[in-house]
């Protein structure tokens, strides 16, 4: 067993320097590495390129790094929830590359599987296709998309063990496992860190070989963007 545990979030993000490319897991605010983002916002590292499906909201998630102007370039698929992001984009302060969500996912996958390129039909005939090689296979057009290269991937898991094996919970899985595979250096923060041997090997989502540093996070806020519910069906026993 190779022990991947680091003792603190500061030790986990050690080595992240100005100008680096980071991948950050999560979909909206679901499954984002809250502890690492907060630590990066405090440590003030600059000129980052961030690859993430979304850009957080104004005062949470990647939004914290945007507020501090720590992000030079953002690569994302949907940024609609962040007004500060949209402002920086429209004024040209922030460099932005919007790409299809499946393309984003597949470029992570390619990196984690050691494949330099993938072909996808998403974006054929649109501005996404500009400057990209296009090939026809079996009568259908595809764009060639290259594997991401990220200095660090930062992911959040539900449980992890000291060997770096990860288990995700519900839709907080999203981009986390594929980004974990794609980083040159992968940091995992987990809600519960357990000794190696505790997790059933059959139930591991991300094998520890992809994870270089793991630590137990704390004070998870797990903010909900759209709290939607239906009226309770439970009858009040004392009613009527």
């Amino acid at each position: 067993m190779i022990n991947k545990v680091v003792q603190s979030v500061d030790e986990a993000i050690d080595g992240i320097e100005n100008g680096m490319t980071l991948m950050l897991g999560g979909f909206g605010l679901c499954g984002i590495p809250e502890n690492c983002i907060t630590a990066l916002a405090k440590n003030g590292v600059q000129e980052l390129t961030c690859i993430s499906n979304n850009a957080g909201v104004d005062n949470f998630g990647i939004g914290l790094l945007l507020q501090n102007r720590q992000v030079k370039k953002m690569i994302a698929s949907y940024v609609g929830e962040n007004a500060e992001f949209e402002r920086q984009l429209l004024t040209g302060e922030l460099e932005v590359e919007l790409i299809p969500q499946g393309t984003l996912a597949t470029r992570c996958l390619a990196a984690g599987y050691g494949m330099p390129v993938v072909f996808t039909p998403a974006g054929v005939g649109t501005e996404v296709a500009e400057g990209k090689e296009q090939r026809n296979f079996n009568g259908k057009d595809y764009l060639m998309e290259v594997a991401f290269e990220a200095d660090f991937a930062i992911v959040k898991a539900w449980k992890g063990d000291t060997a770096g094996n990860l288990v995700f919970r519900a839709t907080a899985r999203n981009f986390n496992p594929i980004m974990a595979m794609a980083g040159k250096m992968t940091i995992a923060e987990v809600e519960e860190l357990v000794p190696a041997g505790t997790l059933d090997p059959d139930h591991i989502h991300t094998p520890g070989i992809y994870v270089h540093r793991i630590f137990q996070g704390k004070d998870y806020e797990k903010r909900i963007e759209q709290r939607t519910s239906r009226p309770s069906q439970k009858k009040d026993r004392h009613a009527g």
Binding site: S77, Y78, G80, L98, P100, Q101, V128
Partner: peptide, 8 residues
């Protein structure tokens, strides 16, 4: 500019 998400 909100992005294409998964639509493309």
């Amino acid at each position: 500019v909100k992005g294409m998400g998964g639509a493309m």
